[in-house]
């Protein structure tokens, strides 16, 4: 019997925010607010993500330029996927706007709420040309029904 890892309060909170955003998006048709894809104070970038599901799997593709395969830290729970990946060199950007200050980013980080319950232990991933593809098999509940 596999032992379930207890979630931290931060993980629970992130999941909760993810659910609220999802419900809001379904009801209103738009994301609740447009957050930029970076957090300047934490020097973090939020990667672009593409997600779709088949009958058996959830497939998540993540754009990770400047990242080395060996630096990727990926973890999954039954309904979240968390990615952390430091970049191999600091990404410098001249910010637009009145301050014109230069900003630096050190890593990509994002927690993704999945559209189905998955089996984290059977999750597999591959990385090519700075793009990470994660395949998360869905947990199938139910009984087989024989059709007579």
């Amino acid at each position: 019997m596999s032992q379930r890892k207890r979630k931290s309060i931060f993980e629970i909170f992130e999941e909760l925010i993810g659910h609220v955003d999802k419900v809001f998006e379904e009801l209103v048709g738009v994301a609740p607010f447009e957050a930029p894809l970076c957090d300047v104070s934490k020097r973090e970038l939020k990667p672009l993500v593409h997600m779709y599901e088949t009958e058996d799997e959830v497939i998540v593709t993540i754009d990770l330029p400047y990242v080395r395969k060996e630096d990727i830290r990926l973890s999954a729970s039954e309904n979240t996927l968390k990615i952390e990946a430091p970049v191999r060199e600091r990404i410098r950007m001249s910010r637009w706007g009145p301050y014109q200050r230069e900003v630096e980013f050190e890593c990509f980080r994002r927690t993704i709420t999945l559209p189905a319950i998955i089996d984290p232990e059977k999750t597999r991933a591959k990385f090519k040309d700075g793009i990470l593809q994660v395949i998360l098999p869905k947990k199938i509940y139910g009984y087989r029904i024989i059709v007579e």
Partner: peptide, 14 residues
């Protein structure tokens, strides 16, 4: 410059 472009074009892509 492909990687640099991918980083800079993220917001427009979103």
């Amino acid at each position: 410059k492909a990687e640099e472009i991918r980083v800079k074009a993220r917001e427009l892509m979103k």
